[in-house]
Amino acid sequence: MSSTLYVERASPIHRLNPVTKLVALLCLLVVVFAIPQWWASLAVLLLVIVPAAISSGVAARLARSAGQLLLPILVVLVLVQGLTYPGGRTVLWQWGPLALTTEGLMFALTIGARLVCLVLASVLLVLTTHPGDLMSALTEQGMSPKFAYIISSTLQLIPSFQARATSILLAQQARGLTVPSNPLRRLGVLMPLLGPLVLGMFTDIEERSTAMEARGFGSTARRTTLVPVRDTRAQRVARWVIPVLALAAILVSLRWIG
């Protein structure tokens, strides 16, 4: 029962402080979406994302996960924009009322390249960063521990609530409940089972809050952490330098290209 996509590897990307990765991801996305030229996204892809993916040791997994997400979107994007782009003048190919235009394809390329960067970079972060480490790192940067708790526990408790729902259903099936294949009737049969599930969840929430208080969650003491978050001076500097570089790139593109 694992709720994380994290893949453990001993790579330099895994070893980075999660906040460094988060800052890099955000800057990268701002650059890609702020600079309108498609080749800017391509450059980011080839110069940053691909090398990072290769050194992370999870490139194959990344290609698979991101591919599943991207492929249908890209196909639709190329077809729809290529054929129906309103500003399309240069017709490459025509079939009845449908015309494939260069302008449409260029527009699809611009949007598509950005999406590829967005998805690849985000999935790479998720694959190489343990959510627990991300939460500790963000708490260390001043994020409220209560907020961190809500995120982590939601991530971890969803699978266990799913397991409970399954076990309630199994228990009912063992007592002769049959689940019809007709979706409407199925809903009718399953609705009453929501009662015990929701009731159980409320009792759990009450008990959990008791247990959390018993473990000093309400304490105002300065919190400590058992496992230190990996960080280096170079990364602390990089977390300032990367946004500055991103800003510079955007300014340059506005001044000389845009």
Binding site: G132, Y149, A214, S219
Partner: peptide, 20 residues
């Protein structure tokens, strides 16, 4: 707690809250 990903950190959770 649900906030921790290893038993080690889970056991330490209360002490972390109290600033040990």
């Amino acid at each position: 707690s649900g906030a921790k990903y290893t038993v080690r950190e889970e056991i330490a959770f209360g002490m972390e809250n109290l600033g040990t």
